[in-house]
Amino acid sequence: MARNERLTLPDLGGRRVLVTGASDGIGLEIAARFAGAGAEVVVPVRNRDKGAAAVARITAQHPDASVLLEDLDLSSLESVSTLGERLRAGGTPIDVFVGNAGVMNPPERQTTRDGFELQFGTNHLGHVALVGALLPLLRVADGRVVMQSSVAAQRASIRWDDLQSEQDYDVARAYGQSKLACALFALELGRRSRTGGWGITSAVSHPGVAPTSLLAARPEIGRSGDTVAVRMIRWLSARGLLVGTPASAAEPALLAATDTDLDGGFVGPTGPGQLGGPAGRRKPWAPLLRDDDAARLWDVSESLVGSAVS
């Protein structure tokens, strides 16, 4: 598949899809593609102005699209709970959940509103709490949960002795741990669903590398300017070299969400180093195969967010 070729999505009319982190970048591309396939797309965002602009862009591309803008701050368990209550009260089943939102590499250690290290708390624990809150709506739909991991998880590990990086904060290591945790959560969710008869399937995707806002200037997390890395990624992407674009980087999550035979599977780019290229099934990285870590992390995460996912 060439860079400008895209997956053909099935007709998703009558389905509801929720995509976190859809106000820009890869998440916006994912949401727009789902909307174009006929799904009703729920877009929960932290910045409502950015969210409104994203919805406007989606509806400009797909005038008949049904897009629901919601408020969500994944770094606040209260915000997660409020959204969960609102969607459960509406009663509409959720057919696909894509946990795409994330924060990357704050220069100094920061914490969420609940006191968790910012990357672990937002990228992982916020999604754990949200999936738990929406589980009834996912179960009634026999839904699919897709969690976005990252190439940073390829050599990551769970630091059980310092989960919140309180003793030793290494920004890249903390990010890698958070994205590994996302993957282990999705895989454990699938195992528990199969054992418990929940009807939910799960998959892990990773987008490779593409120019997004993750490494751009983010004053709200203490990064006043673009990183050298994001400038290089933009340069490579614009020339079609090695890395992807936001559109191509959306493909793995779309494949993971719509391939009905992919329960428990892993999807990513198939180009060199899995940095870009066509989406396809990939052999799971070694850290994703640690089932004991996944089960332990599930229990620890439930304890941290203060609610059971079952």
Rank of each mutant, 00 (worst) to 15 (best):
N4Q: 14
E5M: 12
L9N: 06
R16P: 00
L18D: 05
S23E: 12
G27L: 07
I30F: 09
A35Q: 04
A35M: 11
G38H: 04
G38V: 07
D49N: 10
A53I: 09
A54Q: 08
D64C: 01
S66Y: 03
V67M: 10
V80P: 00
T82H: 13
T92Q: 15
V96K: 00
G99S: 14
F116H: 12
F116N: 04
F116S: 04
L118Y: 07
Q119G: 03
Q119F: 08
F120A: 00
H124V: 03
L125M: 07
G132M: 05
R139Y: 13
R144D: 12
V146K: 01
Q148W: 01
A152L: 07
R155N: 15
E166H: 05
E166D: 15
A172S: 11
Y175F: 13
S178N: 02
L180D: 10
C182M: 12
L184M: 08
G190W: 05
S193F: 04
T195E: 15
G197F: 06
G197W: 03
G199D: 09
P207Y: 07
V209H: 01
T212E: 02
L214D: 04
E220H: 10
D226S: 13
A238T: 11
R239Y: 09
V243T: 15
A249W: 05
E251H: 02
A256I: 14
D261V: 02
G265N: 00
L275W: 07
R282Y: 02
A294Y: 05
V300R: 14
V309F: 14
